[in-house]
Amino acid sequence: MKNLTIRNLSKTYFDPYAGTNVTAVHDVSLNVEQGEFVCIVGPSGCGKTTILNMIAGFLPHTGGDILVGGRPVNGPGPDRGVVFQSFALFPWKTVLENVAFGPKMRGVGKAEREKIAHEYLALAKLTEAAGRYPAELSGGMQQRVGVVRALANEPDVLLMDEPFASVDAQTRMTLQEELTRIWQEKRPTVIFITHDVAEAVFLANRVVALSKGRVLEEIDVDLPRPRSWDALNDDPQFKELTGRVLQLVRSA
């Protein structure tokens, strides 16, 4: 069982335009248990995407430790799946080939990896789209493929970087409900970045409020599952929690 531990993480880089060092992330510590769903929420420029990129291994960190299952992170790897805001599907591969990409990299044979891909596509109700190219799908469908592609690789941790920010509001709600359903079925460890407070509370077990590169507060969300917008829209506990997080983020 793999958990994710972040200790005193910080990021400083040199800005050539300003000619000075800039600190984007200050001394952030966070512990995510196996099977937990954690949302990091904060306004744009608060360093949340930088943190995610460091966990994913796309950016080097300049201080502290990132440990996945006790092993330090060193560059990107298949133990941490990533879902991108811009989907980042391979436009030259069909939906099926996109989802089968991770297993292919592990050296899984063609028949076997296509079976895996079909399984995961069914999970997100994408069976029909298997033979199509990403450009032929709507934004919502593309992001479903993005989520499923990351899951099909069976990562220890799933990192999601504002994945629903560039789809329309209706589709976003559907995708959020589907994500909670898939999460309950597969129970992956998830770190989810967003600026949308309601989205964070709706999805998470725990919300981490971030501002100016520092953790403000961690708030546990013990709303019952399965969650749906129909049920939660008028739920007093949901309202109270979103209100609290919103106040935290805005007052900082």
């Binding site: 994913a56 291994g57 796309f58 990107p76 799946g81 991770g102 690789n153």
Partner: peptide, 8 residues
Amino acid sequence: NAAASLGA
């Protein structure tokens, strides 16, 4: 990045 994180 996606390809790298999928193990390419």
